[in-house]
Structures are given as C-alpha cells and as structure tokens.
Amino acid sequence: MKNTITFLAGLIFGLGLIVSGMTNPANIIGFLDIAGNWNPSLVLVMVGGISIAFLAFRYMANKKLTLFKEPVHLPGTTHLSKELIIGSLLFGAGWALAGFCPGPALVALGAGSKQAGIFVLAMLVGMYGHDIFYTRLFNKAH
C-alpha cells in the first residue's frame, strides 16, 4: 500500500510538471527572461504547489509519525552555509542555460526526449562529481 502511494506520488508530481508546462524549457526561460517577454506561469505553478504542500507540512508539523505510523524524516539543518548559496547559484545558472531542472528533465526523458537524456546524463556526472570527488577532495561530510 505504502509503495503504491509512493509510486503514485511520483506519478502525480510528474503529471503535474507536464500539465503546468514546466517540462517545456521555453516556459522556464520565458519566466527567467524578465528583460524580454516575461512569462509569469512559473509563479502560479509555485503558488499552486506551495498552497497544498504548506497545508500538508502544517498538518504534519507536530506529528512524529506518518499516517502509516512510521517516523517522519525532515531535514534538520538550519545553518545558512556558503555551500548553500554557491551551489544554488551554480544550479540557477545551469537551470537557465537549458531551461531544465531535475524533475522536468526526468519526465521529459520518460517521454523519450533525446535532449533531456543528454542533460540528465551530464546532471548525473555533476552529482557524482560533487558527491564522490568534491566532498572527498575538500573533506566535506554530507
């Protein structure tokens, strides 16, 4: 039952990315292009997503167990690190170059997009590059 819900959560999330237009890189770049013809769609995607998720997080705020009576795992870090900012800046630059972020790229790959495949492969290399080499090189615990 829990496994089915986890699968469905991913499926609904993915379908939401398609319906919202976020799997189309032109819509992302249209949002980021504030100096050109600005497409505000992404703002409404975030408003929609946050309005529902906010209620769910409110509901779970003081609960230690899920609806299946299992422990809740939420990030506990509150430190505003240099890595958080530098990493997010690099992420934002890549996001704008392609118009893809991880979720939509995976969905587009599922739809058979070869270009999404190229992006995803490079993204996996970037993730490995960070988690396996960078963290070891600079001795950063993750």
Partner: peptide, 8 residues
C-alpha cells in the same frame, strides 16, 4: 547545463 544543475 546538466553538469551545473547536478553539481549545484
């Protein structure tokens, strides 16, 4: 872009 998104 993929490298930046993955690493970042």
């Amino acid at each position: 872009a993929g490298l930046l998104v993955g690493f970042g």
